[in-house]
Design a protein around this nucleic acid. Sequence first.
DNA 1: GAGCGGCATGTTAACGTTCACAGTCGTGCC
DNA 2: GGCACGACTGTGAACGTTAACATGCCGCTC
Lengths: 338, 338
Amino acid sequence: MGTARGRRPPVMADVAKEAGVSHQTVSRVLNDHPNVRAETRTRVLEAIDKLGYRRNLVARALVTKHSRTLGVVSFDTTLYGPASTVYGIEQAARAAGYFISIVSLKSIDKTGVRDALDYLADQGVDGIVAVAPQRSAAQALADLPLDIPAVAVEGGEAGEVPVVCVDQVEGGRLATEHLLELGHETVWHVRGPGDWLEAEGRVIGWRSALERAGRAVPEPLAGDWSPRSGYEAGRSLAGMAGVTAVFVANDQMALGVLRAFTEKGVKVPGQVSVVGFDDIPESAYFSPPLTTIRQDFGAVGRHSIGVLLRQIEAGGPQASERLVVPPAFVPRVSTAGR
Amino acid sequence: MGTARGRRPPVMADVAKEAGVSHQTVSRVLNDHPNVRAETRTRVLEAIDKLGYRRNLVARALVTKHSRTLGVVSFDTTLYGPASTVYGIEQAARAAGYFISIVSLKSIDKTGVRDALDYLADQGVDGIVAVAPQRSAAQALADLPLDIPAVAVEGGEAGEVPVVCVDQVEGGRLATEHLLELGHETVWHVRGPGDWLEAEGRVIGWRSALERAGRAVPEPLAGDWSPRSGYEAGRSLAGMAGVTAVFVANDQMALGVLRAFTEKGVKVPGQVSVVGFDDIPESAYFSPPLTTIRQDFGAVGRHSIGVLLRQIEAGGPQASERLVVPPAFVPRVSTAGR
DNA sequence: GAGCGGCATGTTAACGTTCACAGTCGTGCC
DNA sequence: GGCACGACTGTGAACGTTAACATGCCGCTC
């Protein structure tokens, strides 16, 4: 019928007039306020439907001071790990009725983190999830005086902000113990970049497993998560005597190691056993299929949103907590007994 | 210097009082309005600095009707392609001073797309980038009466909305011609899922190259992008006579094909040559390193934001355009002459 | 039947910004 | 000396929503 006068989208007042009530009653209907007569409610809903009214969330945010938007700070969302984490976060947030605003950082310096957080704070997010896998990022986050609820994912020692992470140490231990149980004398390690907490945790797990078993602890080889760095580590390892088992800190580097071994004629798992980390979708089809440690990114996302929302509902930073998600061992064919 | 902590954050009026001017003058300084005396400007800036004032973007958005936020709709951002595209979009948007709100869809039905767009529209985004690689998604987008500027990435035939995409047909052609030039009689194809426009484009490029050369066009094998489906296709191909060259629609499936060939004892590139698509970071370290077609996701992201911003600045949908990014051929060792 | 409490609704005032308009100067020109 | 004009600044009113308070009405209690 004669509804749309002008092109301007309808506002609450238009609905109110159409339904013959006040705009406040419309607001009440929209916010499920209990004290509205059923008959009035349906009349309002009909008017809303008829006019195609949509509530203006910006105006709402202005007065409530809640935008129902969560900020996410991340690094290189092209990598499988961060991408999966962010995906998990996004799904969990949307399920809870929140929007997600994302900032992907290239550089990891303190300024970058500070800028990203400011940027999000400016926009009026209700809370922030920081995927902070590097020591420097975690540090920057911890140092920042935050007036907004926040959660660190894969962040370091619980400081001000609660942390949700996968138990990297346990993962490193699982991988190493598996290799030791197969009868290997010791286990070599290709580690991730020094600044990454995940890399650190895996090293710790690996070392502690070796030490507990009373085995020699070889010097870890340095990698940067890329297949290329794994390839180079693999070339080194292939030339060394006595290497029969390698724990590589992620699947991509493990691929590089496998490649190097193939080129050098080193048989996997015949001569050397290899364990990766992450369980990327590809690793089941490496040559040979890679034994690895799986991280449940979905769970990490859900937990981080859970912790964050609890904080928001409580109206401010809570007692800082640390939630640890266990990793899972995924046996395939790249490992074998001595 | 000392921001008053614990107090209500300062607003424009506070700054105005501090600087001894009106709130409007503060607004002018903030918006780089020309008619402000230099001395006044510095006084205002000092007051801003002193109070630690930050402009409330929500209030600003309410009156200007511009949120400086762009919405992104995507599917399974866990996959390398979508993840990279979204990353490119995010970087380009931020460089242009825009925020990014993301919705990752699981299901691809029309309702899902509609809901996602509504969700973003509610939030007051200034424009929408839809990563719509499936026919159904592109269709849903085209059918929707959008009152917001939008761009489709990897969307189909240019309908109402402009499209930015990689030239998939050209990519398929490049891969196929490369194999033909090496002397192969014909080229087999493991295609992506039927609903995906990218899969379709690659099939078309492959077929047209074969037809132009007057070669037989084998029935393509169906895949779903996963390494597993590639593995199964590979097992089939390994059992067929006369297969010497295979063009696989993405690198992940190519990995599965390589794995199947390895298990069946089929030598690559000795007996069969394989070409992939995407150039994921891993593919240089497959066994053997994979010849493939690279997509420039960064360029796609930049272009889509460019097109979208042009539309926004023009104040509404423009003449629909179609921007095509060329793919690049990346030779490695998985292909060889007959 | 006066008083009271709860329900259903309306009225008015925020929220913090920008926009439209209205001043107030000082300057240059005839 | 008056007048127009431009530079600079201030005033009031939006924007569309929710919060706080006010108002009427009904039924119940004493």
